[in-house]
Nucleic acid binder design. Structure first.
Lengths: 334, 334
DNA sequence: CTGAAAGCGCTTACAG
DNA sequence: CTGAAAGCGCTTACAG
């Protein structure tokens, strides 16, 4: 069927062991190495990775299990992580859990079956709570989502502070009735909600929030209903860009002028948040750095398993745009 | 180290062969099957996929090699393909070529080393031209990008017709000076450009187009320069959503009112194209169907290698929004 | 530096 | 239905 290392050895007139060494930078004389390389070219040989992995007991593979690759945050993180893996000579296996704990369990098992060297994981809230009771055959670095009692390395945003900054900004702009729309399947959503609650409390304001599935569709449905009420908020913060898409669509359909009738602020500096009018005020996450750093933490852990648990918390950057500046511009005019 | 099938056999008091059969739906008595299942649970056994693949000579894996996972089109296609693979009990390996032929060659080799059962591939123009001269150890289904002399199954959009529809629409709205911004690394960009040229010719109009790398950054740079010229177009079509993002940003920065001073139309019905004001007129691609259908073509090909080459061409749907309706609304008012 | 041989963890004819 | 044995394609001590 497929050409194997034996075929190469025969063509090169050397032993299988020598071919293996020549391919793996082992100690081989220049003469034999040249013969092997010629034979590889002549036969079109490609090593069988399954055999190599089985024999060497090294998969050279990292798993990346995220909630939803269609969320641009995860797309960007995955891209950065793959780049880092590629540079380190490792392969990356990407899996989508769709925020479903059952699928998470399946994929975690699959990672074990693939004998991955390590795992980057953005768990749902349910699974994350179970993490301390789970045993993993490989080191795990949590991305975007962790918890206080987690014993795993992690790279997350300072969600509490970031949401606090958004609330402070809105209050400074004169908004008081600030509503929140949060994803309910991740601890990130919870942390951002807590930051919202703390911020509202600090300013002596009454919280008013909803928790939904982290999708544009769910946010759209919830916001449509909410914005139709007499007591609708004058400003709305969301915990990710998918929710913002849904909320903004609902606002448009309700005929609400932004920011005069409804201010909007959220997370992730997607291109479109700058293109809509007014632009959306967002917390920009260092997405590339999150992916790259997570991979680095994992590689270091693989090098040295005795390392203490490291939880890296990165700061977001608040980008103020027109969607939160109704009052300020009015104040400026007055 | 890790628990193997031998450990399970020992615990269950049966042979290794029986464990293997019990796990693989082979003929095993109910009694022994129960013993095996108990032993699997007791030991926490997970089969080693490398060993299984090596021995069975079946990888149970499909490769998906795309240009850029950050392009929402590919994100959506990948999502649909993974879903279809998952349903068929297959794994999906996802790779990003970054539109780089060198990386494509590397990943094609990697697919061979992984002994994938088949490949879904969106090649660059360069690589696509070489396809007829290449030998593959696995069946290949081209996604989004193919060519007239391709001997591979494919699922693509009717790019020529879709772009034609866009031009017809613009002309109907009264636009004459219609510029085009096309990605130059893919045959899809070429086909859309050809559709543009044919459309302009059919209406007796003079084409004016630029070809750029398929990224928002490249489009932004090109459009910024273009739109500053005295002979800038009154309407601009782009060949994908990344280019649209860059073009629209440039238009905004140039202070051009859309659609009065510049009409815009392009591809891919991303959420944000509806949220900007005015909304962007786009060709919606059946992204889910493209991914799902490509996987189905591949599965059928695996079942029956003798099947004739099948090139599936899907139609796009033109969604008209405000970005192309300056003249019409004026006409309507007049 | 080089080769013969063992063995990674499975599956699958082959007997019974 | 069940087990003993061969072997998938590699890598890696072990000798020399």
């Amino acid at each position: 069927m497929s050409v194997s290392i034996r075929d190469v050895a025969r063509v090169a007139g050397v032993s299988v062991a020598t071919v293996s060494r020549a391919l793996g930078n082992g100690p081989v004389s220049d003469a034999l190495r040249a013969q092997v390389e010629a034979a590889v070219k002549a036969t079109g040989y490609h090593p069988n990775l399954s055999a190599r992995r089985l024999r060497s007991q090294r998969s050279g593979t990292i798993g990346l299990v995220v909630a939803d690759i269609r969320n641009p945050f995860f797309t960007a993180v995955a891209h950065a992580a793959e780049d880092a893996a590629y540079r380190a000579g490792l392969r990356l296996i990407l899996c989508n859990t769709e925020e479903d704990p059952a699928r998470e369990a399946i994929y975690l098992g699959l990672m074990q079956e693939e004998r991955v060297s390590g795992l980057l994981f953005a768990p749902t809230r349910l699974t994350q709570k179970e993490l301390p009771r789970q045993r993993f055959a490989y080191p795990v670095v949590l991305i975007d989502r962790t918890g206080p009692n987690s014993a795993h390395d992690s790279v997350t945003l300072d969600n509490h502070a970031a949401m606090g900054a958004l609330i402070d900004h809105l209050v400074e702009q004169g908004y008081r009735r600030i509503g929140g729309l949060f994803g309910k399947t991740s601890n990130t959503g919870v942390e951002r909600r807590n930051g919202y609650l703390a911020g509202m409390l600090a300013h002596g304001l009454t919280p008013d929030y909803r928790e939904v599935a982290p999708s544009a569709v769910a946010a759209h449905a919830e916001a449509t209903q909410w914005l139709a009420r007499g007591d609708r908020p004058e400003a709305l913060v969301t915990s990710n860009s998918l929710l913002m898409t849904g909320a903004m669509k609902a606002a448009r359909e309700a005929g609400l002028r932004i920011p005069e009738q409804l201010a909007l602020a959220g997370f992730d500096n997607e291109s479109w948040t700058e293109l809509v009018e007014p632009g959306i005020t967002v917390i920009e996450q260092p997405v590339e750095e999150i992916g790259r750093t997570a991979m680095n933490l994992l590689l270091e852990r693989l090098q040295n398993p005795a390392l203490p648990v490291r939880k890296l918390v990165l700061g977001g950057r608040c980008i103020v745009r027109g969607s939160t500046q109704a009052r300020a511009s009015m104040a400026g005019v007055a």
